[in-house]
Structure formats: C-alpha cells, structure tokens
Simulated scan of single mutants.
Amino acid sequence: MSPFGQQLRELRRARKLTVNQLAVYSGISSATISKIENGKRGTPKPATIKKLAAVLKVPYENLMAAAGHIRAFPEEIREASESYQSIYEIYQTAVTRGAEHLPIFNSQKWGYLSKQDIENLSKYFDFLASEAKKRTSSL
C-alpha cells in the first residue's frame, strides 16, 4: 500500500465512510478509490484529490502534499512566521487526537464570527485549557 493510499483509507475510516459512500459523495468510482487505497493505482490527479479532500473535510493542500504533488506542509512552514508554526502544531495535535474534523478548523466558518465572538471563543478556550491543566496536574 502506498503512503497516500494508506492515508486515504485512514481518513475515510475516521469519517466512518465506506468505499462506496466515498465514491457516491466524491463522484469517483469505488474501484478507483479501492485501487488507490491498495496501492494498485498511481498517484491520483489533482482534480481527483480535490474531490476527495472536499468529502473527507481535509485541506486540499494536505492531500496534495501526501500525494507528492506539492512540497510537504512542514517544509513550507519552517520558512513561515512563528505564529503560523504554532497554528500548524495546534492542527497536528488535533489530528493526533482525532479532532481535525472540528468546525474550528473550517476557515469558511471563521468568516461569520465577529470580533466579539472570537474574543468569547478565546476566553472559553482559556477556561477549558485551565481546567484540563488542573485535571492533568492532579493525576
């Protein structure tokens, strides 16, 4: 199995989708998806990857990097600002904990939030982080 095929399978399973469901939602045949996952098909074209990313709710660029079409994200952020690095680390933490699908990572939804909404979100996050820190400190 190719690394891309393995990642595709993991993402599909994390979303609790069958191959057939992913095929229906993406417009890509189930045979093609199965071949990709099993490493029996070469690297998918960017148009195919875009369809898969949309259904799997992952950034298109991440799948493009996994497929080898673009330079991997970590390389790019080494050259970026420190704040961008920390945002990437937050996302990576979410991925390792299976939370990358949360609405907070959907950039389109941020467009609806007002400055006050974002401030409230920040205060609530600070509260949750404080409670989590207390909880882990007492273990």
Rank of each mutant, 00 (worst) to 15 (best):
7 Q>H: 14
125 F>E: 01
49 I>W: 00
77 I>G: 05
71 R>L: 10
73 F>R: 14
38 N>G: 15
39 G>N: 09
126 D>N: 14
137 S>N: 14
21 Q>M: 10
102 L>C: 07
78 R>W: 04
41 R>P: 00
57 K>H: 11
133 K>Q: 15
109 K>S: 10
3 P>Y: 09
88 Y>H: 12
122 S>G: 02
51 K>G: 02
105 F>V: 03
5 G>P: 04
36 I>M: 14
8 L>I: 01
87 I>M: 15
105 F>I: 01
89 E>S: 11
67 A>Q: 06
109 K>T: 04
1 M>D: 00
45 K>M: 10
40 K>A: 03
118 I>Y: 03
12 R>W: 02
11 L>Y: 04
116 Q>P: 01
27 G>Y: 05
9 R>D: 01
96 T>H: 12
4 F>M: 04
123 K>E: 13
132 A>E: 12
25 Y>E: 05
128 L>N: 08
10 E>Y: 03
58 V>E: 05
43 T>Q: 08
77 I>P: 04
4 F>C: 02
135 R>Q: 12
109 K>A: 06
46 P>F: 00
46 P>C: 04
120 N>Q: 12
36 I>T: 03
28 I>Y: 07
80 A>C: 11
138 S>A: 14
109 K>R: 14
57 K>D: 13
76 E>I: 14
101 H>L: 00
86 S>G: 06
139 L>N: 14
101 H>W: 04
116 Q>R: 10
48 T>D: 00
22 L>Q: 07
48 T>R: 01
22 L>G: 06
1 M>H: 08
128 L>W: 07
135 R>E: 08
83 S>E: 13
27 G>P: 10
78 R>D: 11
31 A>F: 10
72 A>K: 14
20 N>C: 06
96 T>R: 12
90 I>A: 15
51 K>L: 07
30 S>A: 15
39 G>T: 08
110 W>H: 10
82 E>M: 11
110 W>V: 11
48 T>H: 02
12 R>I: 01
23 A>P: 06
97 R>G: 05
52 L>M: 08
41 R>L: 15
11 L>A: 02
51 K>W: 01
87 I>Y: 09
91 Y>P: 03
81 S>P: 08
67 A>I: 07
30 S>Q: 15
61 E>R: 15
50 K>S: 07
63 L>Q: 05
10 E>H: 05
114 S>E: 04
100 E>P: 01
139 L>D: 12
115 K>R: 07
137 S>V: 01
92 Q>L: 15
121 L>E: 03
116 Q>L: 09
104 I>H: 04
108 Q>V: 05
123 K>G: 10
9 R>H: 05
120 N>H: 10
27 G>N: 08
105 F>H: 02
89 E>H: 13
52 L>C: 02
6 Q>G: 03
136 T>S: 14
121 L>R: 04
127 F>P: 00
67 A>F: 03
108 Q>T: 08
123 K>Q: 15
134 K>S: 09
136 T>L: 14
63 L>F: 01
111 G>K: 13
3 P>H: 11
92 Q>K: 15
7 Q>V: 00
80 A>I: 12
136 T>V: 06
29 S>E: 06
90 I>N: 11
111 G>F: 07
89 E>N: 13
53 A>Q: 03
119 E>A: 12
92 Q>A: 13
24 V>K: 14
100 E>M: 09
4 F>Y: 07
24 V>W: 11
96 T>P: 00
103 P>I: 01
106 N>V: 05
115 K>G: 09
105 F>P: 00
11 L>N: 09
48 T>A: 07
64 M>D: 02
69 H>M: 14
129 A>M: 09
102 L>S: 07
